[in-house]
Design a protein around this nucleic acid. Structure first.
Length: 809
RNA sequence: GCGGACGUGGCGGAAUAGGCAGACGCGUUGGACUUAGAAUCCAAUGGGCAACCGUGCAAGUUCAAGUCUUGUCGUCCGCACCA
């Protein structure tokens, strides 16, 4: 059959029958199956899209055939840097190029034959969506979860914008790989740190890849320790954070980050010049230099001293950029004897080193950073590890100088971007009232079309007077809008909620609608979002829950990452490698069904791998084999007395085994083995068909099951065969076959027969045989007799249905 | 440096819960059909003439190890001065 022709035909019929949408009236159990929505930066779908969406759609179809009311929406993550950068390069307005790309991609997605519910489509760059993105911002602001502050931020000099921590990879911009520099800017942040603890603990209950959960755990970076207050001789106080308060008696100096608020205050006149020079030096270094752990440590003495609260010792206060202003308190106590960094620093600057921990049963070599016995620590001497830290922390809190403290590595999420193509931040800056949120009823703050978006280091919107000049909603006086736009990750942090109620004009969604459809049952997308989108979306869900807009804790119950399809040369597909495989070429030649089926069969879904032409030919051949046998069986005439013997039993076994395993494999996203089971089933059909005297009814019934089993994998092909063999309605409307357990019970099974753990022969043994019977049967086999001659059986292990092992000697 | 994952035929990849390693497919070889090729069908296909040997390497636990334990080498990924 001509797969391309039938695809068009069936797509039209499906659409006419409104076969694919979510049934909002049905009371069947729901399944919300979601693929990460598309980013329309390129004009066409690439292999990665197909790999994400094709197999997942097969899973969705499978669930639908199992009787679930499946919701599988699709949309476009349409705002963002790539579209804008493309615009800068070509002069084509991002709105125009994005809309054009979306139109193309919509057509291609439909050609894929996926059962997306297009009635729920979302485009984040449209007013009726970003209006509610802005609303989210206002709600977070009201709740104190959005705030503006001046802080050292990551600035990409090429993209001309600030970036979130999560978007800086090894000191470089995630998008363009330019080395990021630090700038002090006043920016909007979301207080994701408020949820650090729950974002961490919530991971335990999620059916997500362990690796992804661990990445989030590391990113959140919970660390338990102790805060300790040091007083300076000038009467200032500051706190340090340490995870090793059992070493506090070994403090020989303290270090503040160069950006620490007390840095200049504590500097003595004699040191002022050196300190100024150092602060200047530290502020100039970029992220890469600063983060490198191999870089030699630098620092400067402030000239001042602080007092160690536990022993009254006077220790010098230094500044050094190996202490980060943004973590803990921005200050640390230095114990060179028991910390590698402090040790290196002390060696370089000739600071004293004092050992206060002894290795248990061994010689203590400095720096000694493991747990050990406290020494030189007054009444704490002799305590070890956790117990020691507990005692010291308790003592410190009794002194009123601090106590136990939990810190997180996670920082607040910086959401302002000095870019054009995004949702404007709905805030007005009034000279008399200060920051005034745009009233809800005035949303959306529309993104103007006529804007000079070529970058010059300022927000493009700042140059658009029509946009900027407005009246203060509070006092009515002349005021200015915020010239920045929101990070695109804000748009994608709640889209899965909007799908549930996509046309709502009164609210982003009704609580009832999201509570019914969510959480997402299975979410499928790339692993690169582990610490960005997937973390932000969890934060949004929790914040919205606490504001009373929804009633669940986690947005995505189960998460699956598809692997990456590489170019035929084993490298990532890219223009520079010249190894891009175009799905269109293959779809045109073999059809969407064959292409999807190959993506499922040729790779381990979560692994991916290099593209290979031969595989798709093999899959096309398989479809031809299916068509041939099914149509042939359809011609057979059923008789009154059809044979039913061993051959029939074997075929029925193959059929039910396939049903059982395909069901299991699909559930587990193990598409390659599921297809392998289908192939085995087809091989069994051919084998049976080669016999003289056939049971036509059984053949027909088996082929009917085959078509239904194929339904999720190759939807057009299956419907065509279904129709050609007289089936009613669409395959999708039928129940996915369930296995008949009695057909899977065999009278006898092949055992591997071992003597002293080595395989001697195979033997068919009745399923009903007891272990003793299996043993004596095995002993009677000629091969066994030969190997055991003159020896006695010392032990016999029987694994029912599989193996018997005779230990003789 | 820290953390995690993975090393299986010529190739992509299978092997619940420790139980016949290599499912399924590609490729290869031989055969059938054909004037010929393509396509299709049938058969064989981890290595070795064999005894045997084989899941990166070396040990260990076990009647039995791709699977568990320890060490080691290699590849990939994540984090990386987080006190």
């Amino acid at each position: 059959m001509d797969l391309k022709e039938i695809e068009k035909k069936w797509q039209a019929r499906w659409e006419k029958a409104k076969l694919h949408g979510f049934d909002r009236k049905s009371d069947a159990p729901k399944q919300y199956i979601l693929e990460m929505f598309s980013y329309p930066s390129g004009a066409k779908l690439h292999v990665g899209h197909w790999y994400n969406y094709g197999p997942t759609d097969s899973y969705a179809r499978f669930k639908r055939m199992q009787g679930y009311n499946v919701f599988q929406p699709m949309g476009f993550d349409a705002f963002g840097l790539p579209a804008e950068n493309y615009a800068i390069k070509t002069g084509i307005h991002p709105k125009d190029s994005t809309e054009k790309n979306i139109a193309t991609m919509e057509n291609q997605l439909k050609a894929m034959g996926a059962m997306f519910d297009w009635s729920a489509e979302i485009k984040t760059c449209e007013e009726d969506y970003y209006r509610w993105t802005q609303w989210m911002f206002l709600k977070l602001f009201e709740k104190g979860l959005a705030y503006r502050k001046e802080a050292p931020v990551n600035w990409c000099p090429s993209c001309n914008t600030v970036l979130a921590n999560e978007q800086v990879v090894e000191g470089r911009c995630e998008r363009c790989s330019t080395v990021v520099v630090r700038k002090d800017l006043t920016q909007w942040f979301f207080k994701i740190t408020e949820y650090a603890e729950e974002l961490l603990s919530g991971l335990d209950g999620l059916d997500w890849p362990e690796k992804t959960k661990n990445m989030q755990r590391n990113w959140i970076g919970r660390s338990t320790g102790c805060e300790i207050e040091f007083a300076t001789e000038q009467g200032e106080k500051f706190r340090v954070f340490t995870t090793r308060c059992d070493t506090v008696f070994g403090v020989t100096y303290v270090v503040l980050a160069p950006e620490h608020p007390l840095a200049r205050k504590l500097t003595t006149p004699e040191q002022a010049e050196a300190v100024e020079a150092y602060i200047e030096y530290a502020s100039k270094s970029n992220e890469i230099e600063r983060l490198s752990s191999t870089r030699e440590k630098t620092g400067v003495f402030t000239g001042s001293y602080a007092v160690n609260p536990v022993n009254g010792k006077r220790v010098p206060i230094w500044l050094a950029d190996y202490v980060l202003a943004s973590y803990g308190t921005g200050a640390v106590m230095a114990v060179p004897a028991h910390d590698e960094r402090d040790y290196a620093f002390a060696m370089k600057y000739g600071l004293p080193i004092e050992k206060v921990i002894e290795k248990l049963g061994g010689e203590t070599q400095l720096p000694f950073t493991e747990d050990g016995i406290m020494t030189g620590s007054l009444e704490f001497d002799g305590l070890v590890g956790e117990e020691a830290r507990d005692a010291v922390a308790t003592y410190i809190s009794k002194l009123g100088k601090g106590g136990k403290k939990v810190n997180y590595r996670l920082r607040d999420w910086l959401v302002s971007r000095q870019r054009y193509w995004g949702a404007p931040i709905p805030v007005i800056h009034c000279p008399t009232c200060g920051i005034v949120p745009v009233p809800e009823e005035s949303l959306p703050v529309k993104l103007p079309y006529d804007v000079e978006f070529r970058p010059d280091g300022k927000s493009p919107l700042a140059k658009c007077e029509k946009f900027m000049n407005t009246a203060c909603p509070k006092c009515g006086g002349a005021a200015q809008r915020d010239p920045d736009t929101l990070d695109t990750f804000v748009c994608s942090s709640w889209y899965y909620l909007r799908y549930a109620d996509p046309k709502n004009v009164r609210a982003p969604f009704e609580r009832e609608a999201v509570d019914r459809l969510l959480p997402v049952d299975t979410y499928v997308g790339g692993a690169e979002h582990a610490c960005m989108h997937l973390l932000y979306a969890r934060f949004f869900t929790k914040a919205l829950r606490d504001m009373g807009y929804l009633d669940f804790d986690e947005p995505f119950k189960r998460l699956v990452h598809q692997g990456v399809i590489l170019g035929p040369d084993g490298n990532r597909m890219s223009k520079s490698h010249g190894n891009i495989v175009s799905p269109d070429d293959y779809v045109n030649e073999y059809g969407a069904d064959a292409f999807r089926l190959y993506l499922m069969f040729g790779f381990s879904y979560t692994e991916g791998g290099p593209w290979n032409d031969d595989g798709i030919k093999a899959v096309a051949r398989f479809l031809e084999r299916v068509e041939k046998i099914v149509l042939k069986a359809d011609e057979y005439r059923t008789k009154r007395d059809e044979p039913y013997g061993a051959a029939e039993k074997a075929l029925d076994y193959a059929r039910n085994f396939a049903i059982q395993r395909v069901t299991k494999d699909l559930e587990a996203f193990s598409f390659n083995t599921a297809v392998a089971r289908l192939m085995e089933f087809v091989n069994a059909l051919y084998k049976y068909d080669g016999l003289e005297n056939k049971n036509a009814s059984l053949m027909k019934a088996a082929c009917k099951d085959l078509i239904l089993l194929m339904g999720p994998f190759t939807p057009h092909f299956a419907d065509e065969l279904w129709e050609q063999t007289g089936g009613k309605g669409f395959v999708l409307e039928h129940k996915f076959p369930t296995e008949d357990p009695t057909a899977l019970v065999l009278d006898e099974k092949e055992y591997a027969v071992q003597v002293n753990s080595k395989i001697v022969c195979k033997a068919m043994i009745p399923t009903s045989a007891t272990n003793d019977e299996v043993q004596s049967l095995a002993l009677s086999l000629p091969e066994v007799v030969e190997k055991t001659a003159g020896k006695s059986v010392k032990k016999c292990v029987v694994v029912p249905g599989r193996l018997v092992n005779l230990i003789v000697g």
